[in-house]
């Protein structure tokens, strides 16, 4: 019995290691490249022979990258905040109320999530140019919200459905308005859901390349993934690989921070003890 469990543990452990290595090797490779000097860049070694921070210095010295980073952070944060707030309200209504057109609403949001984004790019480009939204922050924030909302609504309504309705009734009996009941009782309990959704939406906005490249043309609204593709290096003769790698490392940092920051708040089983079922 004990033997099988240790064997099982070993097997699982091995499997985990394989998966982690498989996922992390490219990341580590990029990190390694970002620390190499142009001369040793192509030596094929995993561990850099000569360490240098030049690549990082380069990218932070170029205005291009810093502007793109600011754009990325700003756009992703705003889009996430709006999508989560709107999504929370929609999901709450869907999980709690029976209103005419509810099925339609859910169906349409599913449709949006499934719609191939590539086919929307050209019309969006035209629309945004007409409206003057092209190459602006709102020009990216709006489509991001549109495509993040279905995701937000789905994840959040699953979370809201788990919260006993009696809690809301109890809050109302205790003298809370509908808004207070939501903010002080329901939202804290749905917090894990809100944070999970926020992470997913943020990653979606942060990683987007398609919209960012078609709906921007200058540094005004260009985000990092796009800026990276325009990287040329200091001069025509310089190989930008090292700088691109450094930039790639830099842009994973906010994601990691974001996840770490919110992960601590995702305490599951928060609703236990509320009601006796």
């Amino acid at each position: 019995m004990a033997e099988t469990t240790t064997r099982a543990k070993l097997r699982w452990g091995l499997l985990d290691v394989i998966v982690v290595v498989f996922a992390l090797v490219p990341v580590l490779w990029i990190a390694s490249l970002s620390f190499k000097t142009p001369g040793t860049l192509t030596d094929g070694r995993f561990w850099p022979r000569e360490w240098t921070l030049d690549n990082y210095r380069t990218i932070f010295e170029t205005d291009q990258f810093v502007r793109a980073l600011a754009n990325s952070i700003g756009i992703a944060l705003i889009a996430t905040a709006i999508a989560v707030v709107l999504g929370a309200m929609a999901a709450y209504a869907i999980s709690r109320l029976d209103f005419p057109g509810k099925k339609l609403l859910v169906g349409v949001s599913l449709l949006i999530a499934m719609f191939p984004q590539v086919s929307l790019v050209s019309p969006l480009f035209e629309i945004e140019r007409q409206l003057g939204l092209f190459d602006t922050w709102p020009g990216l924030i709006l489509p991001y919200i549109t495509f993040a909302l279905p995701l937000a609504i789905y994840t959040l309504s699953a979370f809201f459905k788990q919260i006993p309705w009696d809690l809301e009734k109890a809050a109302k009996m205790d003298g809370a308005t509908q808004g207070q009941a939501f903010r002080r009782v329901i939202a804290p309990l749905a917090a894990p859901g809100l944070f999970t959704t926020a992470i997913l939406v943020f990653i979606f906005c942060w990683n987007d390349f398609l919209f960012a490249i078609t709906l921007t043309s200058t540094e005004r609204a260009r985000t990092v993934p796009v800026a990276l593709s325009f990287f040329t290096g200091e001069s025509q003769f310089e190989d930008p690989t090292g700088a691109i790698c450094a930039a790639a490392v830099v842009i994973t940092v906010p994601i990691i921070l974001f996840v770490l920051f919110f992960q601590r708040r995702i305490v599951s089983g928060l609703t236990s003890g509320a009601v006796k079922g």
């Binding site: 006993p164 009696d166 809690l167 009734k169 109890a170 809050a171 109302k172 009996m173 205790d174 003298g175 809370a176 308005t177 009782v185 804290p188 309990l189 928060l270 609703t271 236990s272 003890g273 509320a274 009601v275 006796k276 079922g277």
Partner: peptide, 17 residues
């Protein structure tokens, strides 16, 4: 909230947080 009545639920409905 304007009726000034308190209620005890079968499920207790305590705020778990």
């Amino acid at each position: 909230r304007d009726r000034d009545i308190a209620m005890v639920f079968q499920s207790y409905a305590l705020y778990p947080n």
